[in-house]
Every structure is written in C-alpha cells, then in structure tokens.
Design a binder for these strands. Structure first.
Lengths: 192, 192, 192, 192
DNA sequence: AATGAATGAGGATTCATTCAT
DNA sequence: GATGAATGAATCCTCATTCAT
C-alpha cells in the first residue's frame, strides 16, 4: 500500500533504526538488513533512499548531532547569567535524549568511524568546536584569560564521563553533570 | 625446518601485528589475513595458535594492559611520597608506549569491543579498577575522604583526554599529563 | 493532465533513448531506469508500454532495422542501372543514420543478443537476407552465376568493416563504402 | 584433498570454464558462480585466484589471443613463400581451436567488452595489429604498394566472416578460408 | 611447525518488475 | 496516463575457518 510522500518517513525510520541497532549491538557491525528490518522495510529500499551504508550511518550521526544542537540551544535560551549558562550546558550533555544508552553507544562508534570516514571526522569536529565555543562564551566573564584552559578541561571531562558511561551499563547522567559542575565551582574559586 | 619453542615467538609477533594493524586501520575492521601477513605467517597459523579472531584481539588487549601495568609498577617504584606517586601515575598514562597513536586507537576499539565480547569488558574493568585503586592509594593521604571523588574525576579526565587524543592527530602526551596534574593541584588546595 | 495518443510518442521516446543509452554505454548493460530517465519518464511507465526489458530492446532493434530498410528503399528508388544500384546500396549501409557511433554500437550488441533472445536472431536474419537479396538482384545482370559468391563476399565485407568501425573510434563511412565498391569493380572485371 | 601447486591448474580450469560458459550463454552475462561451478570449485576460490570477475574475463581473452598467436606462429613456420604464408595465415584464422563456436562467441563478446574495459580494447588492438602486420609482410612481395589496401580488405573480410559465423550456428571454417583466398587470388591477378 | 587449498556463510548493492494511488 | 513505493532475487565479493599435506 504505497502512499505518497514516504521518503521523509522512511528516512527517519531508518535513522532511528540505525541508532537503535547500533545501540543494541554496541558496535558498527550492523548490517543494512538488520537496520532495514527494524525499520520495517527491505534493505533494497534502504539503499534506494540513502544510496549506501555509509550514508545511512552518516545520516544517523547527523541526526544525533542535530538533536544535540537543538537541545543545547533550547536549554541556553533565556539563561539569566554565565554561571547558569554553564550549568544548563553541562546538564544538557548528560540529559534526556543525549544520555540514552543507545545514543552513548552510537557516539562511541562514531568516534571510531571518524578515523575511516572523513565526513564522520568532520561532523565530530563540528560538535567539539561548538561545545568549546559554548563553554568559552560562558567562561570568559567568569574567569577571563583562564577560560581557554578551563574549557578544554571541562570538555575533556565531559567526554571522559561519557566514555565511562558507554562502558558501565548503569549510566547516571545527573550525577555526571553534577561532578562536572562541582569541579567547575572549585576551579572558579581558586587563584588565577 | 621447524624450530622448537616457536610458539611464544609467533604469539608475540601476532599480538604486535594486531596492535599495529588496528592502529593503521583505526578500527577493528582488520582481517586475520592482514594481521598474519604483517606478522610474517599464514592466517592458518594464526588460527592454530590462537583459535580464532576474537582471541587474537583479546591477546592483544591483554598485552596492552599488561604492558600498561608493568609501566605503572615501574614508575611507582621508589616514589618518595603521595604527591610524587600521583605525578608519576598520571605521566605514565600519557607516556611512551601508552600514548603511541596505534595504542590509543587500539584502546578505543577495545572500548567498543567491550560491548560485544564479555572478556573484553572484564579486562577493561580490571584496568579501570587498578587505575582507581592506584589513585586512591595516593590520594587518601592528601585529601582524606574527598579521595574517592577526586579519583573518579581524575580517572574520567584521563580517559577524556585519551579519547580526544584518539581523534586529533597530533597527540601531546606531556601536555595532557600536565593538564591533569594542574587540576589535581587546584583540587588539593581548595576547601574540603 | 494525461493527453490522448501518448502511447506512440512514449514508445518512440523510449526507443530513441534505448539506442542512445546503448551507444553511450557501448554495451547492453543498460538499465531500464537509465533508459526511462533519458526518455523523461518513470521506469514503471516504460514497463507499462513495453512489458519488459527485452521487448524494449527488441523494439529498438526493430526501429533500427526499419530505418535501415527505409533508407535502402529510398536510395534504390530511381536507380538507373545495376551498377548504380550496387553503389547506392553499399553507400547507404555506411551513411547517415546507419553509421552513427551509437547505431553501430547498438548493432554490435544486437549481434550478441541474437544468441540469447530468439526474436533478436530472427530480426538479424531478416536484415541479412534482405541485404543478400538486394545485392543478388543487382549483381545477377552483372556477373550471372558468380553473383551468389560475390554477394556473400560483399555482405561479409560490409559486416567486417562495420565491426571494425564499432571498435575504432574514428569511423569513416564514405571510405568504407569506397573500399567495398573498389573491390566490387575488381571482381567484376576479372575472369568468371 | 588439497595438493600443492594447484594455482596454475585452477587458473587454467577457470579460463577454460569461462570460455565454455560464454560460449554456452552466447554473452558476457555469465556469473562467477557459473564459471566456478563448471570449473569444479567454489566462486570464492575463483576470486581468490583472479581477484575479480573482470580479471577472469581478461585472462580468458588473453588465453584465446595467446592460443591464436601460437597457432599462427606454428602455421607460418617453414612456409616456402609469400603466397603460401598467406594461405596458411588465412586458414589458421578459421581453423581448429580458433573456429570453435564457443571461441567465436567469446571473440564477439570481447569486441563488446572492448568498449567498457580498457585492457580488453588494448588486447583486441594487439590482435588486429598482429594480423595486419602478418598480412602485410606476406603481401608486400606479391603486390608491392597495393599491399596496405589489400591487407585492410582481407582483415575486414576475415572479421566479417567471423562475425557471420558467430551468428549462423553452422560455421564452416574451411569454406570461409577458401572464400578469402579466392578473393586474394583475384586481387593479385588484376591490374595495380 | 607451517601452509596452501578450499569453502560456506554472509553482506552490500543492483535491478527488473509489480502495485496502489 | 503516470509514478513513487516497494521488494525478491541475484551477483560480486570478503573472510573466518578448516583440512590435508
């Protein structure tokens, strides 16, 4: 029963299925057939809409990054001051959508894929730069020329906690966020 | 003319080749044939000695963890005090052997493999627990009951910097270590 | 807004597109999708009008043979004598429409297809018989009972020059025709 | 029961099977699986030894051309004079090995493949140049500066008869050769 | 000890074809 | 009349693994 305008629906279903399947498998060793089956269609159709396996993966990655970007923007909207911006920024990294086990697993595989697929590396850089500039923007008013160092530190810490979450089954986002913010406060109150 | 006692030599060659090949490919998408060729033998022999691909990978992982453990023990030997222990401990994580691009790439892939192969997960836990207990042992004299929190923080930060190094081509181990130690000092001088 | 009488227009467009596409690819490895796209319609419509890929190819073949037959008849109309008939007959084989690179490529692929698709073989036989009878009709007055042998020779030579043209990029139809006619003259002036 | 030194045996079996299969199918639409099955092995082994489908085809083509070249050299060895050289040269084109239906079919498909696979085109050119130079070498003493034209004519005629043989099931090599030689004689006895 | 030989299983991808709209 | 949607079947190719030598 083919209806019109299925393309966006199918593409979306495939992206969701890709993330779910990567999450379930915990690796990129996921076949197009598995993804398509989970999305309720034939693998041929998946190829028809995306052109190839790599592009399905990239679409999933883009989707995750876009969702991440959206949630960051939504969280920062209306933040009263720098400290609050930072708090929201950190929390959003470990919240909701972004800290679901499948999403974490997907992130990790993307890090691996970045070595092989250039576009994947580019997308990951976009994420890192965006995070860094967000952190910097909020840190400058708080610690001036120390901002860069603190931003790098917080960024690496966020990634590290994320990585550990990717391993340990029970991932507690709120706790991780509080860990980061606690460190931030300690850094802010010390000598320059 | 088969010589006696070839087994350990062959096994070692395969382990080295595995790490090198994973490093070169930047992923676990490495065939037994590639590994065996780099190790100078047939893939059949690789199977003969290890029984299967997964076990080759596990042996490589064990080798890396053992080497890591050895270098940690060597570094800590004769450390005059807790602060010095910490310094050596952090530096060793980002030093020599342990911060070569191939090794970093291998680590990352092991994190991914931990989802699939139970034994891989166990090995990674061994590493994390060992790092944690080493940190704790040195931190307790310095910050008492804050030690646990600080240890977790440092551990995550080390992993995060490692992860970022896995991406960015130019990996500067010394700088990363100093970043961690600088943070440590700040944490030690603040209020409990 | 479907218009009436689209069928012949669509069929014709598909036939032209088939020839063009075969010419461009230089082989029968041409998909229905490519043909339909070039003809400005969906592949589903191509199937609707022709029923299948083989029949599209056959229609293209029939078109080429019909065009060939038409150009032969037009050329022979009003030929003053046998020698002139022969000249026109030979020239028409290497002229205009019939010696365009795409058409040559299409012919060659049809020869190959003749092995598999019976109807293709039949159509090719029609062409060969028609050429032969045309040659014979004009040769009989000129060389009597040698006509059969000469006709076969000329026919094979025409095909051979065509085949070579199919390979060598630069195809010179006029030169080929003159080669054939030169041979003809030599054959006519020798002893029976 | 794998024995050593199978490679040349397997490669040869595959080449033979390729020719046979192309001959049976009458086209290049032959799968690696079919070829491998006819050669008595798995398709994986076929890939192992040749690396890919195209290279299997090219090997078959090379085999045919080599066999052709060998039979030509053997035939020309000890030819008493130019006229005899020509006779042998023409006969060998339509003889034995070279005029078996499968071989003819294979030739035709190679002509088609020459459009797509560059190496195929190169091999076909080698054949054409070799035939031409062989003809020229024998024709020069007989008809001097007309040799070039006569060689081209004979070459095209040979190809044309070959092409017709590729179609008509019943191929009579001897008759074809005699047709060519008869023409040759007529050409030699006429005015320059 | 060591390897070439061999394969089965599986995966990405393509394509002719069908069908509901 | 026309098409987007959809798929099953087929094909090339890879690879871990086994086995006889």
């Amino acid at each position: 029963m083919p209806r019109l305008g299925m393309e966006p629906i199918r593409r979306d279903a495939l992206v969701q299925a890709t993330i779910a399947e990567i999450g379930a498998a915990g690796s990129l060793d996921v076949t197009v057939g598995q993804i398509a089956r989970r999305a309720g269609m034939s693998s041929a159709l998946a190829h028809h809409y995306f052109g190839g396996k790599d592009q399905i993966f990239l679409a999933a990655m883009r989707h995750i990054l876009t969702a991440y970007g959206t949630s960051v923007r939504a969280a920062l909207r209306g933040a009263p001051g720098p400290r609050d911006r930072l708090s929201r920024l950190v929390h959003v990294n470990f919240n909701d959508e972004n800290f679901r086990p499948e999403v974490i697993a997907a992130w990790l595989t993307f890090y691996v894929q970045a070595h092989t697929v250039p576009e994947a590396g580019r997308l990951l850089q976009v994420y890192q730069r965006r995070l860094r500039s967000n952190l910097l923007f909020a840190l400058r008013p708080l610690c001036g020329n120390r901002a860069e160092g603190v931003a790098d530190l917080l960024g690496a810490l966020i990634d590290g906690l994320y990585l550990r979450a990717a391993l340990g089954g029970a991932a507690d986002g709120r706790a991780a966020a509080l860990q980061v913010l606690d460190l931030l406060d300690r850094l802010l109150e010390t000598r320059p």
